[in-house]
């Protein structure tokens, strides 16, 4: 994916709900328009990250397999 992340979150090894909890915490500190990359090997994150974006109104940009984990990209669109 051709997306440049402003902040990278290493959630490899974490299980539900920690990737989401850290994502929420990181997004709170970021400015609108910035992109967060979440690296996760939790299969649950595949459904949970887009669901969180739908719930909060932030934009899910997509995901990309990277070896044994997945990179998820989320753009902050809500203050």
């Amino acid at each position: 994916m051709d997306v440049k992340a402003d902040v990278v979150q290493d959630s490899i090894g974490q299980m539900c709900p920690m990737p989401i909890a850290y994502m929420a915490r990181n997004m709170r500190k970021m400015e609108v328009g910035k992109v967060l990359e979440i690296q996760s090997d939790d299969d649950g994150a595949h459904a949970d990250i887009p669901a969180w974006c739908e719930q909060t109104g932030n934009q899910f940009l997509g995901e990309e397999q990277a070896g044994d984990y997945v990179r998820y990209f989320v753009k902050k669109t809500v203050a």
Partner: peptide
């Protein structure tokens, strides 16, 4: 705690 964390994470 998991559900409460999820709710708080969702704002």
């Amino acid at each position: 705690f998991i559900m409460a964390t999820g709710c708080a994470a969702a704002g």
